[in-house]
C-alpha cells in the first residue's frame, strides 16, 4: 500500500513565536536549526507583538481554539496574567528531564508548572564614558548632583522601582504594599532634577544616548552592547547593588495541540547547548549557571555579570500595576 505513509515519515512541526526583529531572526537562524537537527521537529518562527495587546489578542485566539503559535516567549508578568486567565497549559516534569539543569532560582516551584525560563535580560547603568568620569559603580550615583544628566524609563514598568527599593529600602519586598510603593516613589521623586528624559520607548533613549542628549541612565544591557559594537560611546555597568534582571518564559496556549513537540523543545531549551546559542547569537543572558556553560569571559560579560542581580518585582507589579502607574505618573507630571 504505497499511499499510506508510516508515522515515521510524517513531518513533525512546531510554531514558536518570539519578539520581532533581531530577536526573532536570531532564534530562527541559530537556535531552532539546532533543535531541528537534534529532534527532527521543524520549527516555524513567528513574530509576536510587544506590549499589552499581545496577551489580549492571544487570550481571544486561544478561546477561539486557534492560537497563532504552539509556544510563545512571554514576559514574566504576562506569565502571571495569562495564568490568571487560564491561558497556559501545564507541563509534565517527567517529559523535561533537563529542567533540573536550570539555575536554582528558575526551578522554584511556582503555583503551576506552566512556564519554563527561556532567557534573561538586564537593565543596567548605561553611561557615556566621555561625560561621566569616573564611571559610577553604584546606583546611588543617580541621586548625586548631576542636573539634567539621565534618561530614566517612566511608569510602572520602569526598573527604577526595583533599583530604588534595593538600594534604599533593603529589597523589593517593600513594593508589595501601597504604602511601600509610595515610599519608593517619593525617593524616585528626588531624582527629578537629574532626569532630563523620562522615556517610555527605548528608541527615544537610544537616540538621546547617540546624540549626547543624556550622560547616561538606565537602559537594556543587550541593546547597549549592540550600540558599543556600532561605535557609540556608551558603557554598560553592573552596579554593586546589581542590575535588574527580567526573565522571559516559554509558555504554551492550551488550545495548541502540539503537547509532545512543545515539551521536546522546552527540554532542548534547558540544555547548556541551547543556552550557549542564546548567549552567543541572541545576546541574552543564559538561565543556566555559568559553570555548566563553555562561554568565554568576554562572551559571558557581553550578556551577563557575576554580580548578583535584582530580580524584577513581578508579583508586586502584577498586583499593583494600576496603583504604581497612577502614582508614578502623578510624581513625574507634577
Amino acid at each position: 500500500m504505497p499511499f499510506i505513509r508510516s508515522a515515521k515519515g510524517t513531518a513533525r512541526s512546531l510554531k514558536i513565536s518570539t519578539f520581532g526583529g533581531y530577536f526573532e531572526r536570531s532564534f530562527a537562524e541559530h537556535v531552532y536549526p539546532a533543535f531541528t537537527r537534534a529532534t527532527g521537529i521543524a520549527v516555524q518562527s513567528i513574530e509576536q507583538p510587544e506590549g499589552a495587546q499581545f496577551l489580549f489578542q492571544l487570550v481571544e485566539a486561544n478561546k477561539a481554539g486557534s492560537p497563532p503559535m504552539d509556544l510563545c516567549c512571554t514576559l514574566n508578568i504576562d506569565v502571571l496574567r495569562g495564568r490568571a486567565q487560564g491561558l497556559w497549559r501545564g507541563f509534565d516534569h517527567a517529559k523535561l528531564p533537563n529542567f533540573t539543569q536550570l539555575s536554582g532560582k528558575f526551578q522554584d516551584s511556582q503555583s503551576a508548572f506552566d512556564s519554563v525560563a527561556a532567557m534573561s535580560w538586564y537593565m543596567t547603568f548605561v553611561i557615556n564614558p566621555d561625560e561621566m568620569k569616573p564611571a559610577p559603580d553604584s546606583w546611588t550615583a543617580l541621586w548625586d548632583t548631576h542636573p539634567n544628566a539621565w534618561g530614566v524609563m517612566s511608569g510602572s514598568v520602569s526598573p527604577i522601582l526595583e533599583i530604588t527599593a534595593q538600594t534604599y529600602f533593603g529589597g523589593t519586598e517593600i513594593l508589595m504594599s501601597q504604602h511601600g510603593i509610595d515610599k519608593v516613589i517619593a525617593k524616585i521623586a528626588e531624582l527629578k532634577g537629574n532626569v532630563k528624559l523620562w522615556w517610555q520607548d527605548e528608541g527615544t533613549m537610544q537616540t538621546a544616548l547617540v546624540n549626547d542628549e543624556v550622560a547616561g541612565g538606565i537602559y537594556m544591557h543587550d541593546t547597549a552592547m549592540v550600540m558599543v559594537k556600532n561605535g557609540t560611546s556608551v558603557r554598560s555597568i553592573f552596579p554593586k547593588e546589581g542590575a535588574v534582571e527580567s526573565t522571559n518564559f516559554w509558555c504554551q496556549p492550551n488550545a495548541s495541540a502540539k503537547t509532545d513537540e512543545a515539551q521536546e523543545f522546552l527540554n532542548f531549551s534547558c540544555t547548556p547547548e541551547a543556552q550557549q546559542l542564546v548567549a552567543r547569537f541572541v545576546g541574552s543572558a543564559p538561565v543556566i549557571d555559568r559553570a555548566k556553560l563553555n562561554l568565554t569571559d568576554a562572551e559571558f560579560a557581553s550578556v551577563s555579570s557575576s554580580i548578583p542581580s535584582i530580580p524584577a518585582a513581578t508579583q508586586a507589579r502584577f498586583q499593583f500595576t494600576d496603583y504604581m502607574e497612577r502614582q508614578f505618573t502623578k510624581m513625574v507630571t507634577s
Partner: peptide
C-alpha cells in the same frame, strides 16, 4: 511623549500609559 516635559504631557499620553502600562 518624545519631545515634551512630563509636566506638560497631554491627556493622550496619560491615556496611553494608563491603558498599556497600567493595564
Amino acid at each position: 511623549l518624545v519631545l515634551g516635559r512630563p509636566q506638560h504631557w497631554p491627556m493622550a499620553v496619560l491615556i496611553g500609559s494608563t491603558a498599556l502600562a497600567g493595564h
